[in-house]
Design a protein around this nucleic acid. Structure first.
Lengths: 230, 230
DNA sequence: AAGTGGTCTAGACCACGTT
DNA sequence: ACGTGGTCTAGACCACTTC
């Protein structure tokens, strides 16, 4: 290579790790030394090693140096798209039916979880997303109207709450939980499946700053898979 | 701020996005202009914007410039640890029982998926992982002995195949799939649950370079949740 | 005290995609 | 052709951690 790029460095370091030239726990040469070996600036080495450390393969500490991780916690990055795009990316046509749209008091556990008084009304939405007119996802959502007052007048028959929130209230942080649940009566009715069918469920809670904006349970139709690459 | 760091830039850009000073679709000033505004080098701006683009908030294209994403694909990063550590991080004691350990021919669909001849024997392992002596995870694994010959003599009663592979054959790439499945007869027997219970299942296929190393199905005991933060 | 990574700078050249 | 981001460089100073 006439000019070593940070990608070349990453590839070569990866090779040395994979071939166990640098086994788990091994202390790498310092950035300065590697810069000399590869004939490039320290900044280039730094970017390569920093990215490898971010993906969990290296541990870096000032003064202690860079070592090959003994417990390479693989980080899988999942894309969490808007449902409409998720459907359309599969080459299907997306449609949504609003099954419920009302202001009401939340159950106690939800109010507690959101850190809101139980006496405060929230917007409760239930939506069925269809892919090529077949049930794809059952969405059960609660929205904090104090956080996004304008949602009360949003045309949620036309644009999904999901999408509207993304456009109108950029979310800064949130928790996501993935789990499996046996379909309950409502899930079964809405998705057109048998009670007890295993469903892939995502629970998401999002905030703007520290203010809770929305909590949503997404129950995917049977057979749904979420895939990623390491 | 006396000296603008790439973190400061990120924070300020994020603020402008959240407060919709820069709404979805908005074209940001060029790196050079932002460098002037913030009084820092272009490289600093570059790093800030590059990281925001990586997390899905910005779209960047040469000549076209940097825009606020209209469809912020949130990227959630999941840590995929070694099972033993996953159990121990929950404050429980980890133990594993090897239920099956044999060389045999793989089923046709698996051979095809791995891209290996069906006539080639693979190592088949079934392991039950226990947390505080309660079933935690049922692991069903196939290992390509050609990729890691030494696994045939590894003490898999002492160290789990998972862990052994991590230490002895650093994996470079892989596919992970998450799904929900109803427990079958074997799942139910091994995990001590009813047939049909919804299980959170991970399927993982890992490679060294292009050579398949191992395929594994991980069926978690009921109630398992995988959580992450955005 | 000393060595390592963390970051910033000012400048340069290049690759790409729009025009 | 031109403007944007993508990357590299050589140097500098700093922050953290170990010794």
């Amino acid at each position: 290579m006439s000019q070593a790029s940070f990608r070349d460095i990453k590839t070569e370091v990866l090779r040395r790790i994979e071939t166990r030239i640098w086994p788990p726990g091994h202390l790498l040469p310092s950035e300065t030394e590697l810069g000399l070996e590869f004939g490039c600036a320290r900044a280039t080495i730094n970017r390569a090693l920093r990215e490898l450390a971010e993906s969990g393969l290296l541990d870096r500490r000032r003064k202690a140096g860079t070592t090959v991780s003994r417990t390479p916690v693989r980080k899988a990055t999942l894309d969490i798209p808007i449902t409409r795009l998720e459907v359309e990316n599969r080459g299907a046509t997306h449609r949504a039916q609003v099954l419920l749209h009302e202001l009401c008091l939340p159950p106690a556990h939800l109010a507690a979880r959101l850190g809101l008084p139980q006496s405060m009304q929230l917007l409760h939405l239930k939506t069925l997303h269809l892919a090529d007119d077949r049930p794809f996802l059952f969405e059960d959502r609660w929205v904090n109207q104090k956080a996004v007052p304008s949602i009360l007048t949003a045309p949620l028959e036309t644009i999904s709450a999901n999408e509207w929130l993304v456009e109108n209230a950029l979310i800064s942080s949130g928790d996501i939980t993935f789990m499996a649940e046996n379909a309950g009566v409502e899930d079964a009715n809405v998705l057109g499946i048998d009670i007890g069918t295993a469903l892939f469920v995502i629970d998401r809670l999002t905030r703007i700053g520290t203010m809770p904006v929305t909590q949503v349970r997404l129950a995917y139709a049977p057979g749904h898979r979420m895939t990623t690459h390491m």
